[in-house]
């Protein structure tokens, strides 16, 4: 790069003296208005310093900043916006609190609020056990399907969420557990094995038809009280339907043996004291709307 400025012979204008493989550059002056705009931006930046919070200052033993003549910071704007949203949310929750489940369900706007609120509350509170898609897992029911241990009507779901399952701190909690038939000596090992074959036979999977036939008698004596004579379960005691394709603790022979021998008693906390009524209603509608919700019987629907 040459540093000797030349004069360009065509234009007669001085070059910058820079030479890139024979290409040189005319040293043209900048337009004055450009310079003026540059100075205006400098003035503008000073105005910004004065108008908005800008400089850090040491004051009263701590670092703070100049407040600016605008009298507010971007943080104030955020805080105001958040407060505004919180207030709007409060109002929404109050509306949900006042309405009953049926009313909310019939009002598209309330339902939209409830479902949005329910989805977020589900993610915060329920997803750790039931999964983020409510798909459940071994011991934790899938809430999307049409199989309900304690009933899938809105009122059932609300009751379950409010008072929990086998949650001793709540007097109204849902009770009823699968006893440990073998461990507690209620049934002998052979009976347990037979009844397992019988349960398998309900879905056409019995290995040993004779054992299944013997197991039918055991079932009638020991299991039908809760699971029903047809083994279709009873929601008032939370006894699952054993004839369907859905197995909370697994449907293989060894899973069923484990359930019969050592019992099952999963626990769900009561959310009544922890979540407000509006959130519980929202969760109820959200879970009911996941695809498996059962309609209220006509008599109950009029409540």
């Amino acid at each position: 790069m040459s540093t000797t400025p030349d004069r360009d012979e065509v234009t007669g204008i001085q070059t910058t003296g820079h030479d890139w493989d024979g290409i040189t550059e005319l040293d043209q002056p900048l337009p004055r208005w450009w310079l003026i705009i540059f100075y205006l931006t400098i003035i503008g930046s000073v105005l910004f310093w004065v108008w908005y919070p800008s400089w850090p200052v040491w004051m009263d033993g701590e670092w703070t900043f100049t407040r600016g003549l605008a009298g507010k910071t971007a943080r104030d704007d955020v805080a105001a916006e958040m407060a505004q949203r919180a207030a709007a949310r409060e109002a929404d929750l109050a509306r949900l609190e006042k309405a009953d489940l049926g009313t909310i369900r019939r009002d598209p706007e309330l339902l939209r609020l409830a479902l949005a609120n329910g989805a977020s509350a589900f993610g915060d509170n329920c997803a750790p056990c039931h999964g983020s898609g409510a798909e459940g897992g071994p011991g934790f029911p899938n809430l999307n399907d049409d199989d309900w241990l304690w009933g899938g009507r809105l009122s059932d779901i609300e009751q379950t969420i409010t008072h929990g399952i086998r949650w001793e701190a709540d007097p109204e909690t849902r009770l009823g557990a699968m006893p440990a038939h073998l461990r507690d000596g209620l049934l002998g090992r052979a009976d347990v094995a037979d009844v397992v074959q019988f349960v398998l036979s309900l879905s056409g999977r019995a290995r040993d038809a004779e054992a299944a036939a013997r197991g039918a008698l055991v079932f009638e004596a020991s299991c039908a009280a809760c699971h029903g004579l047809d083994a279709k379960g009873q929601t008032f005691v939370g006894a699952p339907n054993l004839s369907d394709d859905i197995w909370l603790y697994g449907g293989r022979e060894e899973d069923i043996f484990e359930s019969v021998a050592n019992g099952r008693a999963g626990v769900m906390p009561a959310w009544g004291g922890r979540l407000d009524a509006a959130t519980i209603k929202s969760l109820t509608l959200y879970v009911h709307g996941l695809g498996g919700g059962v309609e209220e019987e006509p008599a109950a629907a009029g409540e």
Binding site: G131, S132, G133, E135, N142, D145, D146, N241
Partner: peptide, 14 residues
């Protein structure tokens, strides 16, 4: 996406 499918009582898939 979540769940991709749901097994129903009668064995059908939703």
């Amino acid at each position: 996406r979540n769940p991709l499918f749901v097994r129903l009582s009668d064995g059908s898939i939703r």
